[in-house]
Design a protein around this nucleic acid. Sequence first.
DNA 1: GCGTAACCCTACGCACGAGTAGGTATGCTC
DNA 2: GAGCATACCTACTCGTGCGTAGGGTTACGC
Lengths: 194, 194
Amino acid sequence: MLDAAVKVFSRRGFHAASMDEIAEDAGISKPMVYAYLGTKEELFVACLHREGTRMMQAIAGAAAPDLPADERLWRGLRAFFGFVGAHRDGWAVLYRQARGEQPFAGELAAMRARLVEVVAGMLDHALRAEGREIAAIDLEVVAYALVGATESLADWLADHPDADPEKTATRMMNVAWLGAAQLLHGVTWRPPAD
Amino acid sequence: MLDAAVKVFSRRGFHAASMDEIAEDAGISKPMVYAYLGTKEELFVACLHREGTRMMQAIAGAAAPDLPADERLWRGLRAFFGFVGAHRDGWAVLYRQARGEQPFAGELAAMRARLVEVVAGMLDHALRAEGREIAAIDLEVVAYALVGATESLADWLADHPDADPEKTATRMMNVAWLGAAQLLHGVTWRPPAD
DNA sequence: GCGTAACCCTACGCACGAGTAGGTATGCTC
DNA sequence: GAGCATACCTACTCGTGCGTAGGGTTACGC
């Protein structure tokens, strides 16, 4: 039943999706939807949570914490793009939807924050292994940028049904890791003095 | 008047924003809003266009095409983050809003596509200058990732009112340019053979 | 066969908000 | 000052869609 909801929400968007359509798509009648899953908002949150936990599990399952940073990043990315490739509906639209709608944006922000934290932790770990350290805020921002780039490619992937998730992950590594690795080795860029 | 609309749309989201509230906020009555700017959709598109062109102009004005790639990127980023910092309302929410709502997503996608094209063109130019070449699709994807990372940091900036746009731009350069520069010099990352 | 209980439906109430009709004030022309 | 136009408002209509009330159907116990 959640599947039907995800499908309709993804096609129409939260507001444009009518409970009638969801019910019809699920093959039951509207009062049943209310009986099982409560109001429209609750239904949407349920979808969000399910897709979110699925995704986080896919990533967490792939990126074991005892691997070296590049390996973790690679596996995490591969799992992530694999997930998005397999759940284009779920991702593409729940995600795009949830960003805009006030009540859900917070929910989503929390999820993303966990992801950012994981990435930041990974970078920090790698840094310490090199005997180096940078400000926590910088770390957070870098992690944010990486997560953002990844999400952006996920969008691209969702819009290009023929694209290969694996290949997309590789491309992402090419941008992310080469950049991050430089930082880890202490190479930084400074603004010109103009 | 558009200012009021942007403010309300940004605070409430497209659907939750009522024309009454916009009118009240603008200090006029609803029929006036309809007289001047047409329906709600048209109003939103007008907001989107204005903010969009303003942003593109800010960027285009800063990143002259005859500069070297890193300089262009830096100036473009600085202009972009400066713009977002100064128009937090406009950016943060019009952008977040427009992604989700079906009728506007296309509009926004087109804008972003122009940006991606510019970035890709820049990378391509830099590559050719080095006597190198990579597949157009790869270029596009890399550009996409860079744009995505930048947007993500813009979101971060919009949510952190105390953060400094200039500094954010510098951080972005640290991730983006160091990564992109590697690619330009022919360094690539390859997946392990597992 | 009749009570009853679980299950699901059709059909409605109701609120909310986009868009409009028709009226009022202010200023301008002759 | 009468006629007219411009600028604006209040107060309405009407569609839409969430959430629910109340009724029908099947299965089982007695």
